[in-house]
Amino acid sequence: MLEKVEVFDVEESLVDDLVYVCSHRLLKDPLHMMGVKLKREWFLRMLKEYGPCAKVAYLYGKPVAQLLFYPEEADPSGPRRSGVVRVNCVYNPFPWAQKMGAARLLVESLVEDAKKGLPCLGGRPCRFLAVHAFDTGEYYPQSAFFRRMGFRHAPGCGPNDLYLEVSGRFEPPPSYEYRFKPEDLGRAYIVYGEECQFGYPFAVQMSRLIRSLKPDVETVLIDRWKMAEEAKRLGLEGLVVNGKPIKSFITDREAFIRELKEALHVR
């Protein structure tokens, strides 16, 4: 079946296909489309400055899977390790197109390019690929998939932080810890990234939920690409409420609300 799968680097003419893979069910959702707008603007900036930072796989001519990546040096809030490429995610949401090798070919294509020299690194070989293989709860877990592709656990990092050495040795990232300020009390800081079209909508949903539990809480949305220093002060936590980092995510609603109530001191 692999001969039916084709992989292309995403230039400007293919941005709509990149968006479609992840957003095809939400193209009429106004909030989600705000996230799409941010993603599109981010990607075009990256494309202009660094070159292609995504690949799309096509099956029978239809876009079915995507792989997003970028040089860590481009991210002002990240570790910025020289010669390291951050893999943001790989995603194939179409059951009819799964188990056809699309995701595997996307990663193999990136690894091959990384060995030769990636445009987003100015043609330099990549030292290693790094990924936080978050799991959406859908389909085959990203963490298991990347491990099958040869990625290993990154020492000293979280359980889903993985790496694949290409032309150099693994280098651990610096650690960021939340630094409390007195003005953090009574506020909720929500950190998101423009590189994913789901980032902004999730941030807005979290803000609405927090305000529904305690209306007088001030919610502050932090775009980590534009407010990097504040994002790092917050330890790159996705959410800090009333001076307390929240470890669960809104998709695990029961655990998320329980943590929010504890931080907000509400029943």
Rank of each mutant, 00 (worst) to 15 (best):
R124Y: 06
P125T: 06
P125I: 01
C126G: 01
C126T: 14
C126K: 00
C126M: 03
R127S: 07
R127Q: 07
R127I: 00
R127D: 00
F128R: 00
F128G: 00
F128S: 00
L129I: 03
L129G: 02
L129Y: 01
L129F: 05
L129N: 01
A130Q: 03
A130D: 01
V131P: 01
H132E: 13
H132P: 04
H132Y: 11
A133G: 08
A133H: 05
A133C: 12
A133Y: 04
F134T: 11
D135I: 04
D135P: 07
D135M: 04
D135A: 06
D135Y: 03
T136M: 08
T136K: 10
T136Y: 08
T136L: 12
G137R: 07
G137N: 07
G137L: 04
G137F: 06
G137T: 02
E138Y: 14
Y139S: 12
Y139A: 13
Y140E: 08
P141L: 09
P141C: 09
P141I: 06
P141S: 12
Q142P: 14
Q142I: 00
S143C: 11
S143Y: 05
S143M: 06
S143W: 05
A144M: 10
A144L: 15
F145M: 05
F146R: 02
F146E: 00
F146H: 02
F146Q: 03
R147D: 05
R147Q: 13
R147S: 05
R148S: 14
M149E: 11
M149P: 03
M149Q: 14
G150F: 11
G150S: 09
G150W: 05
G150K: 10
G150R: 08
G150C: 11
F151R: 00
F151A: 03
F151L: 05
R152W: 07
H153D: 13
H153F: 11
A154M: 08
A154D: 03
P155S: 11
P155A: 08
G156V: 10
G156K: 10
G156F: 09
C157V: 05
C157E: 15
C157F: 12
C157K: 14
G158S: 15
G158N: 13
G158C: 14
G158I: 09
P159G: 13
P159C: 10
